[in-house]
């Protein structure tokens, strides 16, 4: 127990050193990579609540990631130009936009979950995928917001006391968000609610037999995971100052799933490791070959075959 907290503190301390290391090596790209990892880790940790804890293989997580991102993009677009529908003004302040992004994604998750959770197994995977594709094509067709080409904006969302141009500060913002999300999810998975989720993964039939109305708990978990993905999407939009339908593409959903499984599903730190492994491998392999997936594929197969709990499982 104590050792775990110590390990977490050491990990946070090391993560705080990334900008210093990047400066010492003269490689500012490292800061972007670190930010990228923190953001993906947030979304993957949320997805792990579904895959690793509840036993729900959602294949549409990119939809909520993208919706969070587009909330930021669209609000910035209207802040710079006309009001939305002529009445709703845009927003640029982080303390307003980010909660809005979380709310939009959580609401979408509530609606999509309400329908998809009536199915299980492969049908559930397919229906979550189908809903995500629907949102993907919605944003492709929204020409006002750039359609296929995406939507750029000039400035990151404002946070009092932090310059929107400061990449190091933004890294720390994302790192803080990641730590907060992990701490929250840690409480949740050990709470009564978390117990129920883990019970449903292990034996849903038994959970019903002892009197649990399972649907509402699955739906709540789905909504929480959606909201968390919305936050990650909002941060990602801020990192690039750009959103595009790519954020909602099914390959993005697949990447999130891979991060969870690669790092170790059912542990909160697993998805963080998975996100780091994925981002670092991708950027490293991309230097050698544009067909980096050819190398990535076998690595994935290896981890899934030989480590039941992902990369984390290799060290247990």
């Amino acid at each position: 127990m104590v050792r775990r907290y110590l390990a977490a503190l050491v990990a946070i301390a090391l993560a705080c050193l990334v900008p210093a290391v990047a400066a010492a090596l003269g490689k500012p790209d490292l800061i972007t990579l670190g930010t990228q990892i923190a953001i993906y880790a947030i979304a993957a940790a949320g997805l792990d609540l579904l895959i690793g804890y509840t036993g729900l293989s959602s294949f549409g997580h990119a939809a909520f990631f993208g919706l969070g991102g587009y909330t930021v993009g669209i609000m910035a677009f209207h802040a710079a130009g006309e009001k939305m529908f002529g009445v709703i003004p845009g927003l640029t302040e982080a303390w307003l936009v980010w909660p809005l992004a979380i709310a939009v994604s959580a609401l979408a998750a509530l609606a999509i979950g309400a329908l998809s959770l009536r199915t299980t197994g492969v049908s559930f995977i397919m229906i979550t995928l189908a809903f995500a594709e629907m949102f993907f094509f919605l944003f492709v067709s929204l020409k006002t917001y750039g359609g296929d080409d995406g939507l750029g904006f000039r400035r990151r969302n404002g946070i009092p006391g932090i310059s929107p141009r400061d990449d190091v500060a933004f890294y720390y913002v994302c790192l803080t968000a990641l730590v907060l999300v992990l701490a929250l999810l840690h409480r949740v998975v050990h709470s009564r609610f978390g117990r129920v989720l883990q019970g449903m993964r292990q034996n849903p039939r038994r959970m019903e037999a002892i009197g649990l109305a399972t649907y509402r708990y699955k739906l709540t978990a789905f909504t929480i995971a959606g909201g968390v993905a919305g936050l990650a999407g909002a941060l990602h939009a801020n990192l690039l100052r750009f959103v595009s339908p790519d954020m909602l593409h099914w390959t993005m959903s697949g990447d999130f799933m891979i991060m969870v499984v690669l790092g170790g599903a059912g542990t909160l730190i697993g998805p963080v490791i998975g996100a780091a492994a994925m981002v670092l491998l991708q950027s490293w392999l991309a230097q050698w070959t544009e067909h980096w997936m050819i190398v990535m594929g076998p690595i994935l197969v290896f981890v899934v075959l030989f480590a039941r709990r992902g990369i984390l499982g290799l060290f247990r």
């Binding site: 709470s191 009564r192 129920v196």
Partner: peptide
């Protein structure tokens, strides 16, 4: 966990079970 379900709803997110 059975006692937890018997005791009422499980929408409790904070305290360690």
């Amino acid at each position: 966990l059975v006692e937890q379900i018997r005791a009422g709803h499980s929408f409790r997110f904070w305290r360690e079970a």
